[in-house]
Design a protein around this nucleic acid. Structure first.
Lengths: 148, 148
DNA sequence: TTAAGTGCAAATATTTTGCTGTCAC
DNA sequence: GTGACAGCAAAATATTTGCACTTAA
């Protein structure tokens, strides 16, 4: 399990400011939602929560902000094995990279941190002379409670 | 690089027959396309190629057949880091699991087989008491020709 | 001031579904 | 014969874009 990260509120906002990126009301609302989320959210969920803060936030602004954060390398995009529909989920990039496990029966998502994962990426970079910018390892299967 | 797999033509069709799954003209065309593909194809590409064989094949049949093959564990679904749009790509499940690398500059997709990947999955199954059915490791970055 | 960001509406892309007729076994 | 599969059309879902107005720096 990844260690809970002690997060400074508004850090995401600061990271963008440090890069000279303009801050606006809708953007602030969306960043706050992503920052305080305790689970992986999709675009519609981010929209709904952001609207609870700033009523005027539009769906397209959510997508544009997600795009910005992806380009800046501040969030990761996940499929979670498409356990619910074809959309994507997002999470702050915090702490060590981790593996996402999706239970095909109960739908639970869990996370796993492993040094072997880091070694594997290093090995790939070396053996393939490939510079990794972003990586995603997802597995689908049966969790301890659901497996037979 | 994964070793090229010597493939018996019609093997996919046989695998379905062995499971008592009905064979039809459109299905045969789609299976053949997937089987003989030399690169990862998305649903639209599969449709176009299948239509070259059997003019009447419908897009929904392509999606239904992809769904069937996924449920049967005979193909893997890939995002290839969404280097082109939001769709999915498909490939025969053949030989050892491999990692997909997508170059963010030239778009080249390459593959990497590693024993470390297998160890990582074994470790996850043991440590998390999770039974893996399907896994997907994709990385985005810069290939040897494009990195600076 | 002005380049960047926004909401709104519409377009595009991707996948799924209902239905009715057909076909494999 | 019958349940599985097909094409077709339409719907559902997910994301992007053009445009005119607004705003942060």
């Amino acid at each position: 399990m990844p260690l809970p990260q002690t997060e400074i509120p508004g850090r995401l906002q600061k990271q963008l400011a440090d890069r000279g990126i303009r801050m606006t009301g809708p953007r602030r609302a969306i960043l706050r939602v992503i920052e305080t989320a305790n689970k992986h959210l999709d675009a519609s969920q981010i929209l709904r929560k952001a609207r609870a803060v700033d009523r005027s936030v539009d769906r397209s602004t959510v997508y544009r902000t997600i795009g910005l954060l992806k380009r800046q390398g501040l969030i990761d995009e996940l499929d979670l094995m498409h356990i619910n529909g074809e959309g994507h989920y997002y999470e702050r990039k915090l702490g060590p990279d981790h593996i996402h496990m999706a239970c095909l029966r109960c739908g639970k998502i869990s996370e796993f941190v492993s040094k072997t994962f880091d070694s594997l990426k290093q090995q790939l970079e070396r053996d393939c002379r490939f510079h990794i910018v972003v990586s995603r390892l997802e597995v689908g299967g049966y969790c301890s409670a659901c497996r037979h």
